[in-house]
């Protein structure tokens, strides 16, 4: 996986929404959006797997606290296709992150690190960010 865009000092606050639009590569196997404080402290590792690590069309979410991964959460919804443009919205509060998928499906992932601001975003894998908005 090529290392993608990294953004820091975003200063995204609870209640605000991060909207990310990008292109999924035509032969996509997997991509990642990481959100948190820095690379070792992630409140959300969002990893749609088309065909990777033994998973097919599954979203795997996790957190990373001081460099240590938490328990994986698997979300059965998978509204992603290789070679398409997708938009994902993520908002958070003290207890949860709310992820809105391209088809409008929403799910929550616990804010295990209780972060009060999201300052770090990194993309990796078969996805190229074209647009980001903070609302």
């Amino acid at each position: 996986m090529a290392c993608g865009l990294v953004a820091s000092n975003l200063n995204l606050k609870p209640g605000e929404c991060l909207r990310v639009r990008g292109e999924v590569a035509p032969e996509a196997k997997s991509f990642v959006l990481n959100l948190g404080k820095d690379n070792n402290n992630l409140c959300l590792h969002f990893n749609p797997r088309f065909n990777a690590h033994g998973d097919t069309n599954t979203i795997v979410c996790n957190s990373k606290d001081g460099g240590a991964w938490g328990a994986e959460h698997r979300e059965p919804a998978f509204p992603f296709q290789p070679g398409s443009v997708v938009e994902i919205c993520i908002s958070f509060d003290q207890t949860d992150l709310t992820i809105t998928l391209p088809d409008g499906h929403q799910f929550k992932f616990p804010n295990r690190l209780s972060l009060e601001a999201i300052n770090y975003l990194a993309a990796d894998g078969d996805f190229k960010i074209k647009c980001m908005a903070f609302e």
Binding site: C3, G4, L5, V6, A7, S8, N9, L10, N11, N119
Partner: peptide, 8 residues
């Protein structure tokens, strides 16, 4: 703190 992006 300044907003920063790498691997643009």
């Amino acid at each position: 703190a300044k907003f920063e992006m790498t691997n643009l």
